[in-house]
Every structure is written in structure tokens, then in C-alpha cells.
Amino acid sequence: MGYRPPHMNQTASPVARESILDFQAGQSFAVRNRQALADVREGLALWRLATTLGWLDIRLRYRGSMLGPLWLTISTGVMVAMLGFLYSKLFHMNLAEYLPFLALSQVLWAFLASMVGEACSTFIEMVGLIHSVRMPMFLFAMRVVIRNLLVLAHNVVVFVVVFAIFRIWPGWDMALVVPGVLLWTLDALALTLMLGGLCARFRDITPIVNSLLQILFFITPVIWKPDQLGQYQVYLPFNPLYDLLEIVRAPLLGEHVAEATWAGAIGFSAMLCIASWLFFIRARGRVAFWV
């Protein structure tokens, strides 16, 4: 009696997850709002799946390479070192002062820029999955955001190393970076839902977003310092990306974040989140037709 053939060991085969679908066309705003909330809730419940998807995306990019995702760190490191030498000469700045600033800026900007860029393909790249199984749309947003946060985590090494080389310690005030990063995550999710949907519906938006990003890179103080702008500095808070960049960058440089910057960051985030949610309520059920 001790031996049982292998197939008998399977007690019960796994059971699919329970679901209740109730759709009624032409529903009121309140009902659609509830459905959108349910979508987010279901997405959050699948956090393990979203994390796995995000992580597999990175592993896939570097599959077969010896160093794997470490390439992220290396390529950012090399770029920062090169640009640091070049720009410190061009701008006549002290390398020890400029390089840490550039390393930090470049890493943070890379996150913001790729977040915006990749938000566009959130749903388009998942067309196969969207057409073959029902999944909460929020799951796809989580996947893109998690993927980018993981890339950011790899790149953090670069400025930590640069700071260590130049013996820079921003002080304990850098803990203020936490609310900044939380706001970033929230904004990233909102942006992904909105741009992902808009770009699936209107295919011209992706190239528009990409060219805007290039312009924003130059008008946002990423490679140049805000005080180089002199008297025109007062206009900087009107650039949403400046506000968002600054609330995370300044604490890490041991600088104080101006009230106007925080007000701008919160104000622009609130606008983004509201616009994104209103869009998502309308778009959630249509995404399958758009992709």
C-alpha cells in the first residue's frame, strides 16, 4: 500500500479563481466608478503577479547576457561619468561639485522619462493577454510602474557610489525623500492608466509624447542647476517635471525643498490623478476594443 503511482498524488487539481461579472450597458457614472474601483482592487489583489511580470520584463531584456540587469547599473554609470567630465568642462564647474549633482539628476530623470515613455505602451503591448483572458486593467499599470521602480533601484547604486567617492553625506534630512517617492509612485500609476488608454485609442499620441519628452529634458534642470537660471528661477515651479524632480532630488543633495515646489508637485499630481481617474472610469471597458 506504500506505493502510489505519481498521478494519484495529485489530490485535487487547482481550482480557478471565483469571479462574478455583471455588466449593464449604458450605466450611470456612479456604477462605472464602482467598476473602476473594483478593477483597482482586483489589480492590487494580484500584486504578486504584477511584481513577477515586472521582474520578468527586466530579466527578459537581459536574457542570455552574462551580467544581466547589472547592465542597467553599468550603462548608467558610464554615461554619468562621461557626461560629468564633459559638462563640467563646458559649464566651467568644479567636477567634485557637479558630478554628484549630475549622477543623481540623471538617474532620477531616467526614471521619470522612461515612466512617461513606457506608459504609452501599457495596454498596446499586452494585446494578446487582453484579448484572451479578463484581467483587471490596473494590473497592467502596476506592472509598468513596478518594472520602472526596479530599474530605478538598479540605478540608485550609481549615485550612491559617486557620493561615496566624493564623500558626500546629505544628512538625515534625506528621509524627506520618502514622501516624494510615494507621490511619484501614485503619479506613475495615474499616468500609466491615462497615457496607456489614450495611446491605445489615438495612435498619434505616442510620438507626440516622445518628442515632448526631449524638449522637457532641456527645459528641466537635469544637467544644469536651477540657480544658473538667475532671476528666471521663479518660473521653474510651473514646470511639473521640475517640481516632481526637485521634491526627491533636493533632500538627497541635503537641500531644502521650497514651499512653492511642494505646492506645485502636489497641485500638478492632484490634477493628474483626477484627470486620469475620470478618464479611466470611461475607458476601462473600452480598452479591449482599442488595442
Binding site: A16, S19, F23, A25, H131, S132, V133, R134, A288
Partner: peptide, 30 residues
């Protein structure tokens, strides 16, 4: 399967669901 939401009418599907719709079945080929 809840993939397309109807523009007119009502759909209720209660119970755990498996939809075997296409060969790739949402598999990621990479």
C-alpha cells in the same frame, strides 16, 4: 469571458471561469 463589455444589454456570468480562446492563451513567447 468579460473581455468585451457590451454596448447594449446586460451580461451576468457568475462562477469561476476558464476561457480557452486562442492557441497562445496569453502565453508570453519570450
Amino acid at each position: 469571458a468579460g473581455i468585451y463589455e457590451p454596448v447594449v444589454g446586460r451580461v451576468s456570468v457568475h462562477g469561476s471561469l476558464a476561457a480557452l480562446l486562442d492557441t497562445s492563451l496569453g502565453m508570453n513567447v519570450d
